[in-house]
Amino acid sequence: MKSVEEIKAAIESAVPGAAVEVVPNPGPAAQHSLRIAPEHAIDIAQFLRDDPELALDFLSNVTGVDWPDKEIAEKVKVTREVKKMVDGPDGKVEQTVQETVDETRKRVEPGCLEVVFHLYSIAKTHGPLVIRMRTKNRSDQVELPSVTPIWRSAEFQEREVFDLYGIVFTGHPDLRRILMWDEFKDYPMRKDYVEPDDFEYEPTPHDEVLKRAQKHKGREQQTGIRDQERVAE
């Protein structure tokens, strides 16, 4: 199969205006990927499937990845004016001195939700080509175009990504929750998902379970279950 750079060039010549970015994979697998802009996704998908040389007719895997907002601490050199008492000829004199200080500034890098597609070609028996798409943010602009009209195999997998990550696929024929029940509110696979408070007694609580158990100490004491002393610690 062509290398990702060649495919990038092919896409850009076939779909005018498509901004394709190569995302290198530093690991030993070296499965580099292409990040495409959601606006051109359908055209690019059509091209990848129908191009006789690529013929990526088999969409094997569709999945979501959550990249939460990242707080980055940076050290910045800051110069500011400081008033100091300096020994002058007639006693102490106040003087303004320039001083350079290191200051830590926090910057929030906005997060996003990402969809990853793994494409193979059955006709040419090559692959995988990894395609990525990102939403604008994680809260309100989470729409991405659905590729179900191009590859039917995305039908259930996009529903799953919608269910677990909350990415809304526009143009999906039947976008409903698939694994969780319809009334469920949150998106469980997101990194900041908080589990509902459904404490259940466990004789050997640990880490997270122990914390939850400690919260429920009162209830534990009422029921008089054997593990009180551990929870009380």
Binding site: P28, A29, Q31, N61, H118, P128
Partner: peptide, 22 residues
């Protein structure tokens, strides 16, 4: 493992079983 990602798949009895890891 070092940072990176990989998609590995085999022909399981039921079909293509793949694992995608980051």
């Amino acid at each position: 493992p070092k940072p990176g990602e990989a998609y590995g798949r085999i022909e399981a009895p039921k079909g293509e079983l793949g694992f995608y890891l980051i």
